[in-house]
Amino acid sequence: MSAFARIRALAYVFAPARSLASARAFALAFALACALALAALVAVPAAWAEEGPDPSNQVNPQQLPDSSFIYDTSISELETADSYLDGQTVQVTGEVVGDRINAELDFDHCWITLEATDGSFAEVPVLTTLAATSVIDTYGAYGKRGTVLQVRGTFNLSCPDHAGLSDLHASHVSLVSKGAAVREAPDALRFVPGVLLVLAGLALVLVFRHMRESRR
């Protein structure tokens, strides 16, 4: 049985009316709908094949590497970094320690030192603007916990502008936490070495006096 004959037989079954004329009309409409659907299924893949790949989505082998990717790293990793991070945009978090030093021949910039907060005591000098340092309320020192900053900028393994110094040229500085005064309770164990040295000195004095008295 041909495909059209099968469609016509189905039309006789599902025709809305039982007359022969209505069944034929329904069969013709049903066959036309099937033909249009089949043509659409054939035409769509052919259109996709003729369209081809999007030329704007091509890989350019001549494109130079882009350093706009931000490496969220740590100060201790920068201290031991190799040439891979040289010239890359990095982001670090650290405590401001020491003092602010004005940059030579550049009155709008200054140097600050960031120390790692992971206990490694690693440091990195940061060149930033004077305006960016307005968020610093405390510079870390004995009895003071410095302001913690998040700094994003370009890392130079051997900066040609600053005598080969490994530094970070900041492009963005944000506050993480404010500094504060730190009061440490006296530790009695720190006095033990001094007390032992004093006792050892007294013992040597007594021994020396005893040896001098015995010679008389």
Rank of each mutant, 00 (worst) to 15 (best):
V59G: 10
P61L: 11
A49C: 00
L64T: 13
V92G: 11
S76W: 02
T80H: 08
A81P: 05
Q58A: 15
T80L: 06
N60M: 12
D99I: 07
R100P: 02
E79H: 05
Y84D: 08
D82C: 02
P61S: 08
E79W: 01
D72T: 08
E77R: 14
E95G: 02
S74H: 07
E77L: 13
S67D: 14
P53N: 05
P53Y: 01
Q58D: 09
L85M: 12
Q91A: 12
D99H: 10
A46V: 05
L85S: 10
S83H: 03
S76T: 13
G87H: 09
Q63S: 14
D99E: 11
I101H: 07
D82T: 10
L85P: 12
N102Q: 14
S76C: 08
V92P: 13
P53W: 01
E79C: 03
D99W: 06
I70Y: 04
E95H: 01
L85D: 12
V92F: 10
G94E: 03
R100F: 04
E50H: 00
G94Y: 05
D86V: 05
A46E: 04
T73K: 06
I101W: 09
N60H: 13
Y71E: 12
S74D: 10
P45T: 01
N57D: 09
E95A: 13
V97L: 11
A47K: 01
P65D: 08
D82S: 15
G94F: 04
I75S: 08
Q63I: 15
A46Q: 08
S67N: 13
S83A: 15
E79Q: 11
L85C: 09
L78D: 09
S67E: 11
S68K: 14
P65W: 03
V92E: 08
S76D: 10
T80G: 02
E50M: 00
Q58R: 14
P55A: 01
D72C: 01
V90I: 14
W48Y: 11
E51L: 00
P65H: 02
D66Y: 06
A46T: 02
V96P: 09
T93V: 14
D86Y: 03
L78S: 06
Q62R: 10
G94R: 04
S68Q: 15
L64V: 14
A49H: 04
Q88G: 01
S83W: 04
N102M: 07
G52Q: 03
I101N: 02
E77A: 15
Y71S: 15
P65T: 06
D86I: 08
G94M: 05
E51C: 00
Q58M: 11
G87M: 15
V96F: 09
S67G: 11
D72S: 08
G52V: 01
S67T: 13
D72Y: 04
Q58C: 07
Q88H: 11
